[in-house]
Design a protein around this nucleic acid. Structure first.
Length: 593
RNA sequence: CUGGUGGUAGCUCAACUGGAUAGAGCAACGGCCUUCUAAGCCGUAGGUUGUGGGUUCGAUUCCCGCCCGCCAGGCCA
């Protein structure tokens, strides 16, 4: 209970003021010692002040101890090591957290960090050009957990998905679908290697047929007219120069196909493009929802063009003198604002770059009045952060209002072997397949079991194992055990909040209460650090305390109602923390297993 | 090459932002089910925190050099 902590802090400050009246104390360090025999709280205040005061730290600790005001919370204060002050709490203070949790279960752990502040969390935001894969899954698990955590910590949180529905990749998906459609109608056109190859494309093509029959069929020669054709297969001895030329030709061929398709289809292109887009977005939405991830808003990149925001924001930069023209393209002088090199916002061919719409998007987001905007990005985009911040500065925004936590890559392992994935070949494991294999709970939990900015090895065998090795089950099992005991008990659960806790004295009971008492602090830290993994680690530790206590003590004690109630109150409070924590991570709390 | 990021027990990872004897889980070894769920618990063993310096009462944490791993460096998205 942080309340305890702040009360102890008051005591320490009072003591310090008495001993060293002139000393300025910015922060009083109070921590939960790792070792039980160091008490409930420890402070290194004497060590910190010793130097400035020019006094021996142990002596100073003695003086501080003597000057501490008497408090009902504190049973004993000891001086240890080089000059630590170790506080041992009174039993009542130790177990006060139990009543606190039971009095307001839903509110237990809730913080008021962000009172009145609004935060937007934008995450996943994958191109709607195919199913989400396991990498996106990590972004989803992290982003959703972070958003939940911030909301629990008291911020007003908006969850947003930025839909990249305006770019060339979307055109490529549309034409890939249409080419499959043509193929299904007997129009044979070589499928470009840079098109989308997945089965879902053919499936969408069948959808087109179902809705539009052969209305969208066009002749092959008309489509191929003007296209450079695909390059011949490269010999094994090809130089990098040749490979580069072939790749350029492949891209040029694709662009020509798209351009010609727009001409041939006319309005029909909007149908193909619009329907494939809608289908992909809907697919992602469902996929994420089944993963326990919901958004408040799906924001369309295209809308930024339609509303003229992209042109307007570029114009603003232009008038502010931050743009210049070189080799036909329009460049943003981002080096003036800390970026390594200048960046193109409008290509030689007049088309805006992805960066241009991104500037418009961030300008728009900040314009909505959020105190903080958090973009969760894949770590491969980290080089992109300085240029976006540069643009924000150039537009007169405070760049500190944008935070970009990075999520590292995911490698899958099954039976100790790495599962090979390659985006190029379309061989990637989808989030859906992962969920089907491990279940939602295990997937959500495993994803946040590692700091987000660290590469994650996802062990499928472990996540699916119904064994004691599996950390998800370990935590959930603690919940199930508590529920099981409570359901066997005949008493009234509502009475537990006022149970007499004076009978709780054993080591495992004390350890469990101490761990439980750290829940609110943990929430605050995790929210401030944008670190949902702390929640997962905490829950594991709390479950461990519960299991130890469970094995050491009988909860339902025949003929001793007060002891039974005290212990049940303790584990009920534990269940409150477990449930609140798991909920933040999108993991269920089973009542039985 | 430049920038970012990491290197902690055999393996996978923590370490409350500079604190006490660096902690968990797997794997290894030894114990605990006629008692509320053994998907659990208890114990033993395992370390020069990559390396060399520096800062100080005190360094896994901060600074510098070096070694090794991963990522990024497009008028792609």
């Amino acid at each position: 209970m942080s309340d305890l902590k702040s009360q102890l802090e008051v005591l320490l400050r009072a003591a310090a003021a008495a001993v060293l009246p002139e000393a300025v104390i910015d922060e009083v360090v109070l921590e939960r010692p790792r070792q039980a025999d160091h008490g409930d709280f420890a402070s290194s205040l004497a060590l910190q002040l010793a130097k400035r005061a020019g006094r021996n730290p142990r002596q100073l600790a003695e003086a501080l101890k003597a000057a501490l005001p008497v408090s009902a919370l504190v049973q004993a204060v000891e001086i240890a090591g080089p000059g630590f002050l170790n506080f041992r709490l009174n039993p009542a203070a130790r177990f006060a957290v139990v009543a606190e949790a039971l009095r307001d279960p839903e509110g237990f752990g809730r913080a008021r960090l962000g009172e009145g502040k609004r935060i937007q969390v934008e995450f996943v935001s994958s191109n709607p050009t195919g199913p989400l894969h396991v990498g996106h899954g990590r972004g989803a698990a992290f982003g959703a957990s972070l958003a939940n955590l911030l909301a629990f910590a008291g911020y007003s949180v908006q969850r947003e998905y930025y839909v990249n529905d305006a770019g060339r990749q979307m055109d490529i998906l549309a034409i890939s679908t249409w080419l499959r459609y043509l193929d299904q109608h007997g129009v044979a056109i070589p499928f470009p290697p840079n098109g989308y190859q997945g089965d879902y494309v053919a499936s969408m093509a069948q959808g087109l047929t179902a809705r539009h029959g052969d209305r969208l069929v066009r002749a092959a020669d008309a489509l191929l007219k003007g296209a450079p054709g695909l390059p011949a297969a490269l010999p094994a001895t090809a130089t990098t120069e040749q490979a580069k030329a072939a790749a350029e030709q492949t891209e040029a061929h694709m662009d020509a196909l798209i351009a010609q398709a727009k001409v041939l289809l006319g309005e029909g292109w909007q149908i193909v493009h619009g329907e494939t887009l809608a289908e992909q977005v809907e697919d992602m939405r469902l996929d994420l929802e089944e993963f326990g991830v919901r958004y408040d808003q799906w924001f369309s990149e295209h809308s930024l063009y339609a509303s003229g925001r992209v042109a307007a924001v570029v114009d603003r930069l232009e008038r502010a003198g931050h743009l210049y023209r070189r080799e036909g393209a329009l460049w943003f002088r981002s080096t003036s604002f800390g970026d390594e090199k200048d960046r193109v916002v409008q290509r030689e061919n007049g088309i805006y770059t992805y960066f241009a719409s991104d500037i418009a998007y961030h300008d728009e987001k900040l314009g909505r009045g959020f105190d903080l905007v958090i973009d969760v990005w894949g770590a491969d985009h980290h080089g992109y952060i300085p240029r976006v911040k540069a643009a924000l500065i150039a537009l007169g925004h405070d760049p500190a209002r944008l935070e970009v936590p990075l999520v590292q890559f995911v490698s899958l392992f099954r039976n100790g072997e790495k599962v090979q994935m390659s985006t190029r070949k379309g061989q990637f494991v989808t989030l859906r397949a992962l969920r089907e294999e491990t279940g939602r709970d295990a997937a959500r939990f495993f994803y946040v079991l590692r700091k987000s900015d660290q590469a994650l090895d996802f062990d499928l065998s472990l996540a699916t194992s119904q064994s004691n090795d599996n950390p998800v089950y370990y935590v959930q099992y603690a919940c199930a055990r508590i529920n099981s005991v409570l359901s066997r008990w005949k008493g009234d659960a509502a009475m537990l909040a006022s149970a007499d806790l004076g009978r709780l004295v054993t080591d495992t009971e004390v350890a469990l209460a101490q761990q439980l008492a750290q829940f609110p602090d943990m929430i605050r830290h995790a929210a401030e650090d944008r670190a949902p993994h702390s929640v997962a680690f905490y829950l594991r530790a709390l479950a461990a305390c519960l299991h130890s206590c469970y094995n050491a003590e009988q909860f339902l004690v025949d003929g001793d109602a007060t002891l039974t109630e005290a212990r049940l109150a303790l584990v009920s409070a534990t269940l409150v923390a477990l449930r609140n924590g798991l909920t933040l991570l999108g993991v269920s709390t089973p009542t039985r297993m």
